[in-house]
Amino acid sequence: MKHLSSLIAVLFLAALPSISSAQCRSFAKNKCMPAMAPYKFNETFNAAQLAPGEEATVDLTFYSGQSYRLLVCAHPILGQVNWKLLDASGNSLFESKADDPKGSFDFKVATTQKLTVQIDVPAGDKGGNEMMTVGCVNILVGYME
């Protein structure tokens, strides 16, 4: 029985990416995108399926003269996540902490450049027979036309 449950778990995990990708997109569209208005979504879908204790980073190009909204939207199953915006030198430009969350950041860049969004999901504090929970974290960018 133990081997069977392990096999089922492995098979389930093997199917995980494609199921979760579709769900992440659905979650982004239905739950995250409304907060983008009045900015126009830039059509670039960035998402990660993360568990507590995991991190993700994404590099994005931002053009001078554009006004942007950066939206980090995590599924409630993960609770609030920490995220920050870094420049090419690693300097923190904006930070949102799980205990003081900010869902979005509106900004402009004086010069076109790449910035990095870094996300980390606070580790759970449950011990023992903890369920392995994975949730979607979407990083969405909108701009003003």
């Binding site: 769900q23 997109r25 929970t133």
Partner: peptide, 13 residues
């Protein structure tokens, strides 16, 4: 229709 469940909960092995 997308599946209603957005997250996956997997029992530990």
């Amino acid at each position: 229709e997308q599946p209603a469940q957005d997250t996956l909960t997997v029992p530990p092995t």
